[in-house]
Design a protein around this nucleic acid. Structure first.
Lengths: 221, 221
DNA sequence: TCTTTTTCTGACCGATCGTGCAGAAATACC
DNA sequence: GGTATTTCTGCACGATCGGTCAGAAAAAGA
């Protein structure tokens, strides 16, 4: 993903390369938003360009095709989500690790809602563009996380729940607060959730989901 | 929604009216599928028509505009979901009622996945077409269900969880199995869930979600 | 300074979109 | 039978789409 030809770079990087990164980042941010709000088919290159404040041809210059730009957007959120699950490791305390994972994913739901929506749209439409991500990376990544949870179960650290469905439930609930933001806002009298309400959300989601995970008799989460 | 001019209908209904209903139903079914798979912008009338096996002009004849057809599709799934929550009533046993609600919504996730996807797409894109549904019907409907759950809490029948976030969690998890079918199938080695796996899903979702609802010391769900 | 490379942009192409419309075909009514 | 109404369909329209391309503008390299 990173530029390769930065061999003789001392301190200066040149006006061109700096501006290239700036423009590229602005296009990616605009594309993430427009793809989320209009779907792949409804997001026209000219609308993305207008949102980024540059001519349509310039977007094509940097990303060649609409599909290539789209893949970059989807890849970004995929990488971010993957990193968010670093806490799910066999050596960590299960309840604490899962709680951290839920917290991080809810933070991402608030800070990067557009990326989540793009992913949701892509999966709903049966991943016509990024099916290789699912088969090459998501599948093995998921199996690894399931193995960790099942190790916790074997060691008697959590209740013997279905690791796979627990993962799905965490994904579903956390991403719901990103993908269905508009519905949640409407049901909140049309105003966005406050900091305090996001705090309540974190507590409520962890309380609901982790109660079924923790061993009976343990302290509340 | 129902035809009004059926005044002198004895037994026969005429070839025209019967065929009108048949064609209308076939268009609606095709539209639900195409809107789900391509999004509102990506779903062209000609594709819907081809999927229904009739000319494009005939679709326009029955539904006037693409937007009107879309509203009919969204309205159908909205009504179905609303009826699925009939069990959430103050007189019913909470755990049993919520379990029934989860079961019914998971059944709908399996039998009507396209409708769920259309709804998800619409909300992700901030309800440009059906915002009035959200404000006029969904809002009051949701408040009523929250009131029932809070009544259960006041009577000491369930733990004092957040009724609103419990509802959101149920929506998120159940609809996840419809909207993200393709991801779940890919993670299931590319084959659709079997009857047994759907049964496991129901048990796992109810186990995870209702454990946080049931009073401590109660029997397992 | 002059050349080369990178960056940027407007004009344009063929395809597809939603929709309007005239008229054919089928059915209903008397 | 004939007339009226409903149902159906091919065609045409303006608009917008993704993408190409020639060439201007800017920066880099010498």
């Amino acid at each position: 993903m990173v530029d390769v030809k930065s061999d003789v770079n001392k301190t200066t990087r040149g006006i061109q390369s700096r501006n290239r990164e700036e423009v590229t980042a602005r296009i990616l941010a605009a594309a993430e938003k427009v793809f989320a709000e209009f779907g792949y088919a409804g997001a026209s290159i000219s609308r993305i360009a207008a949102s980024a404040g540059i001519p349509k041809s310039n977007v094509v210059y940097y990303f060649e095709t609409k599909e290539a730009l789209y893949r970059r957007v989807v890849g970004e959120i995929f990488d971010i989500w993957r990193a968010a699950a670093d806490s799910i490791s066999e050596d960590n305390d299960p309840i604490h690790a899962l709680g951290e994972y839920i917290d991080t994913k809810l933070d991402l739901a608030r800070t990067r809602p557009y990326g989540s929506k793009v992913w949701a749209n892509e999966i709903i439409q049966r991943a016509p563009i990024v099916q290789d991500y699912l088969e090459d990376e998501l599948r093995s990544w998921t199996e690894n996380r399931i193995a960790v949870i099942e190790a916790w179960i074997r060691k008697g650290q959590i209740r013997p729940i279905s690791a796979r469905h627990l993962l799905y439930a965490i994904w579903a609930t956390t991403q719901h607060y990103a993908d269905f933001t508009h519905q949640i806002t409407t049901l909140n009298d049309g105003v966005e959730l406050t900091d305090a309400q996001w705090g309540d959300t974190k507590s409520a989601v962890k309380d609901l989901l982790l109660c079924g995970v923790a061993l009976p008799g343990r302290n509340r989460i």
